[in-house]
Design a binder for these strands. Structure first.
Lengths: 376, 376
DNA sequence: TACTTCACTGCAAAGGTTTGCACAAAGATC
DNA sequence: GATCTTTGTGCAAACCTTTGCAGTGAAGTA
């Protein structure tokens, strides 16, 4: 029932190879023939069978998107942007949800490997060594995690944390808590490192609470701890936790921002809509999705996977591009932060370094994808 | 480089067909041979190539998910549930975003058709006739839209609207506005119909404002109109619009729920987190995703698409199952609704019919999938 | 005219898998 | 001990497409 290249060939009185070329190498066929073939194809509603094509070319024109939790509002904008960018380049996108489970991640990469030209690993929870191993099976781009030798798209949450801590310090907060994220999260480690350094520089004390699940409940559950810790400001791993904390503090009768200031990370849509509106570190999620797809597809055109064309020989020993892109973040100040107990007094320590793009490239790499600069 | 059935055959000293059978029809191969083959396959890390398999069986073990807007918080839970259910049955899922564009929907169905065993159309904006036409190209299940002769998964927003209006009437509201959704939305029409009937029955007056884009801005933009309309309660097409309206009314200095009560539809995560917390009609989004996948896969096993097995003859003229499932909704009362000007007075009109599941089946259909009942 | 070049097209193999059919050996039946 | 089943395996075609190679005829060159 489905119409194949053969039907088009019959209808237009040419050999199937001519039809094939009409689509995959139009310059090789006589213009007159071409229009005739195209007309017939149009008539019959012919669409090339990508599976069959993949079988011989080794390129599926599909990519895989492996996501820790689709329902986490951080990811949909990333998925949307990645899908859009991929389709723009005539790629289709498999999406799979791992429920934050490392084993599921591995299984999915294996399952998808034969069916895609590459995989985007978003905030993976696997071990580094496993990721490296998998990257030998199928081209990988990692989002939100840094791995030597692999292409990564990172958001500079370190910079974000610094901006947040400096903002809090300037407001007169000296006792600050950090609500850590899940174990194994690169972002959480980075946040901790940078927040620690910034607090030290600003003469503030940082208390780390966690690890916590990266959800609303994760924040809610820490409300009591936050009160006990005696801090006047909190930086949360992400907005979801911050919002949970908002709820928890409200239930405890702690006023935000009067008694405690709260800062989130991600700037998900939600954070504009809470009361009080959340001050947060905006991460360029959509740009990350776009960039990651670009890097994957770039890698794919540079070093095709299989195919008969002997391309294999070319890739042997060739080092893949391993550009690492760091996207800039920014602090969005809303209503959940307010002056603290030391307001008005001089901030000790050095002043903040100017913002500006921060980009890092792997040594030995020439190909650096430009990091998008994102408007808030 | 990729390991094929051929490598496994060589390693285990059998013919490739035996290897193939080991995976696709294990009962046909000697247990001893089977374990040997499986061991070799495991050793070599063999994974069947689904594209090659699809080429001959006609079944890709993929499905497509076409979504109006991934970033709309209504959809992620649906996507997540659908993907989980599909993978549970060893199917992979393509996800595509149409940006609420009907033309994109059509193009995507075409593009995906050859690569999937079926497509889930979520809240499509296309014309009915086009959907019917496309359904001849690839099995379709439609979510959030009713079409005769096609399998549909619907949420009983009519029931939800009735519950909402009755709730408002009981609270003493007589002037109610409905913020309509986008043109072409089945849900919006259904809402309007049911809300109109319920209002009439309760002796309230319903003002319809719209159509509006189904976004926060859609609601925000109508705040002024709502105030002018002189209503004391509003039912919005979805939570996003309701939340936008909350913002808009706040900006105008109109108190919610003191001056105006607001009810949304969907019960997205967000609606628990606004101030005031949103009263809303909860739609069983995840159940809809699961059910839709089940229906698609059911259809697919009943009437295989192509394949060599002569199954084609069997399907010729056979009517596909066109079960239509209506999933129950419920009203979740939170803080955005409060007594209105007629509070305490007797509600005119008939009392509410009891809730309870509401299910509809297409005449001539025997196969009705049970509708999940969803806890709030 | 004879030769080369060029543009176009056809031929057939290849890619990884499934599956109807044929075949062999072993067991069951009488 | 001949015949019939049963069980397990191999053979080869088929799915749809791409692509290196060879062949055709026409145009260009000497």
């Amino acid at each position: 029932m489905p119409v194949t290249i053969r039907d088009v060939a019959r209808a237009s009185g040419v050999h199937i190879s001519t039809v094939s070329r009409t689509f995959s190498a139009p310059h090789l066929v006589n213009p007159e023939t071409r229009v005739r073939v195209l007309a017939c194809a149009e008539d019959l509603g012919y669409r090339p069978n990508r599976a069959a094509r993949a079988l011989i070319t080794g390129r599926t024109h599909n990519i895989g998107l492996i996501i820790a939790d689709i329902a986490n509002p951080f990811f949909p904008p990333l998925i949307k942007a990645a899908e859009s960018q991929a389709r723009h380049r005539d790629y289709h996108v498999f999406v799979a949800d791992t429920n934050e489970d490392a084993a599921a991640e591995e299984e999915l990469v294996h399952a998808l490997a034969k069916q895609v030209d590459g995989v985007l690993l978003c905030s993976p929870r696997m071990s580094n060594s496993l990721i490296e191993q998998l990257s030998r099976e199928v081209p990988l781009v990692v989002v939100n995690r840094q791995l030597a030798g692999l292409p990564c798209v990172l958001m500079d949450v370190g910079q974000g944390a610094r901006l947040a801590i400096e903002h809090l310090a300037r407001l007169g907060h000296r006792q600050i808590a950090l609500l850590a994220g899940p174990r194994g999260s690169w972002t959480s480690r980075e946040l901790r490192r940078a927040a620690g350094a910034a607090a030290r520089a600003a003469g503030a004390e940082l208390t780390v609470l966690g690890p916590n699940p990266p959800t609303e409940n994760g924040g809610l559950a820490q409300a009591e701890q936050v009160r006990r810790a005696g801090v006047t400001a909190v930086l949360a791993y992400n907005d979801l936790m911050a919002i949970g904390l908002l709820e928890g503090l409200d239930a405890l009768g702690v006023g935000v921002p009067q008694e405690v200031s709260v800062v989130g990370v991600d700037d998900i849509t939600l954070s504009r809509l809470t009361r009080p509106k959340l001050t947060t570190v905006a991460t360029p999620t959509a740009a990350a999705g776009r960039t990651a797809v670009d890097m994957l597809l770039q890698q794919d055109t540079d070093f095709p996977r299989t195919g008969r064309g002997g391309g294999a020989a070319a890739t042997v020993g060739a080092r893949r591009t391993t550009a690492q892109v760091m996207l800039q973040t920014e602090l969005v100040i809303r209503d959940s932060t307010a002056p603290g107990p030391y307001a008005g007094r001089e901030v000790s320590g050095a002043t903040a370094a100017g913002p500006g793009p921060h980009r890092r490239a792997d040594p030995g790499t020439s190909d650096v994808v430009a990091g998008d600069v994102v408007a808030s």
